[in-house]
């Protein structure tokens, strides 16, 4: 799952390295709110789910681990 998330993130913002550990994607300005909208659409399509609108909060997109947890919470296998 992590590799796929990194692949989707890199397609969205190719100028950043999303594989590095310990970086907060939001605090570092790697993802803004518009990126999150586009990312949610990509993740929904990739995993055949619909991420709950209430879960679309910046902290759920701060790292690959956070995104993976979000996906699992919303039914991704």
């Amino acid at each position: 799952m992590k590799e796929k998330i990194i692949e989707i993130l890199t397609q969205l913002r190719p100028e950043f390295d999303f594989s590095q550990e310990g970086v907060d994607f939001i605090e570092e300005g790697m993802l803004d709110s518009f990126d999150i909208v586009a990312l949610v659409s990509e993740l929904d399509a990739a995993y055949g789910i619909s991420i709950d609108g209430m879960d679309i909060l910046p902290e759920n997109f701060s790292s690959v681990e956070a995104i993976a947890a979000l996906l699992r919470k919303n039914g991704a296998k």
């Binding site: 969205l12 909208v37 586009a38 949610v40 659409s41």
Partner: peptide
């Protein structure tokens, strides 16, 4: 203040 590629992604999502 966005790249054309990012604008097009937004266009699709929104």
């Amino acid at each position: 203040n966005f790249s054309p590629a990012k604008c097009m992604k937004l266009k699709l999502a929104m």
